[in-house]
């Protein structure tokens, strides 16, 4: 891809990101209840104090000016104070983020590991039993309410079979000095296989819950792409070259059929962000999603606002990455 095209594509992000910020800002403006009063709810504040605080926070200035300040602050990671935690919102979010990233990556990996072979096999053996089972499976996958499926998994594996933990990220007994803040990776890096299995056992169920709908979508994408590719001339030509079936399928066909799958996976990773809220709540996973849900109930709006902005920006960027991936993986497409 040409650098210029990349630059042009990047510039297209600007209006979208700006629009997203406007919406987040307007959401906050329209939120009922005065933030200052919420903050000072548990204190006996005089009207004088309220007024001072309002002025300090810039709430008495016109909306447009406040939006400018908001944008500037957002760009520098200053989202104000989380009045619930009495710490900067940025710090609170940064603290919770690794757990969410770990869960999301695990789910993404799991979804790909399920979907790619399944989609390929379903395509090769079109209309076979495997294909039909995959079709039924992916119908279930997109129809499963994640919060319920998570609970069912807990009932099965944690309560009845007692082979996996009910909630959390790692037992307190395990403590690993952070490197990447992703517990599974850190425990491996620190040479603690016991902690690794512990972290992994906590990770399996939430990751599976999160991965299943995505795997369902990706299986279909992979199957359709593979069927399409197997009909193409270059597969016939590869057969005429006398190559092994394995090489034709897993090198010639898959390299092309992966393009849509990887693209959709990048987009779907954005959707995982939404699913995170539900799954983290079900499994008591100490990530950003659960933090947001908790914050709503204590009306910790600055945090909700910052998190929503963070999610939206990540989502837009993931779609952008999907676009770029598509062009990079598919040399024929010119940007």
């Amino acid at each position: 891809m040409k650098p210029l095209a990349l630059l042009g594509r990047t510039l297209q992000l600007v209006p979208v990101l700006l629009g997203v910020s406007v919406i987040v800002f307007v959401m906050m403006l329209l939120t009922p209840g005065d933030p200052v009063e919420i903050m000072l709810a548990d204190q006996q504040a005089t009207p004088q104090q309220v007024e001072t605080m309002r002025h300090d926070m810039g709430l008495d200035r016109p909306a447009l000016e406040r939006f400018g300040v908001f944008l500037g602050n957002a760009a520098t990671g200053n989202f104000g104070l989380s009045f619930f935690h009495r710490r900067p919102v940025f710090d609170v979010i940064a603290e919770r983020l690794p757990a969410t990233i770990e869960l999301t990556l695990a789910a993404l990996l799991l979804a790909l590991v399920i979907a790619i072979p399944l989609g390929v096999i379903a395509a090769i053996k079109k209309n076979s039993l495997v294909d039909r089972l995959a079709a039924v499976g992916s119908l279930f996958g997109i129809s499963l309410p994640g919060f319920w499926f998570g609970i069912i998994l807990i009932i099965l594996f944690a309560v009845h079979l007692k082979i996996l933990p009910v909630a959390g990220r790692m037992d307190f007994a395990c403590e690993v000095a952070p490197v990447t803040y992703l517990l599974t990776i850190d425990s491996l890096l620190r040479g603690r296989p016991d902690c690794f299995t512990n972290a992994l056992s906590h990770l399996v169920l939430p990751a599976l819950t999160l991965a299943l709908p995505m795997a369902a979508v990706l299986t279909r994408v992979q199957r359709t792409a593979m069927i399409e590719v197997l009909r193409s001339d270059y597969i016939t030509f590869a057969e005429a070259k006398g190559l092994s079936r394995r090489r034709i399928l897993w090198r010639h066909a898959l390299k092309n059929a992966l393009v849509p799958t990887v693209t959709v996976a990048a987009i779907e990773t954005g959707s995982l962000l939404g699913g995170n809220m539900v799954v983290e709540t079900v499994f008591g996973w100490p990530g950003l999603g659960r933090l947001v849900v908790e914050s709503i109930f204590v009306r910790n709006y600055p945090l909700v606002q910052a998190a929503v902005l963070f999610y939206a920006v990540t989502y837009v960027l993931l779609n952008f990455v999907a676009d770029i991936l598509y062009t990079v993986l598919n040399p024929r497409v010119k940007l």
Binding site: F237, H252, K255
Partner: peptide, 10 residues
């Protein structure tokens, strides 16, 4: 057509 006969990804 060599354009379609050659694998675009290799």
């Amino acid at each position: 057509d060599a354009l379609t006969a050659l694998n675009p990804a290799l």
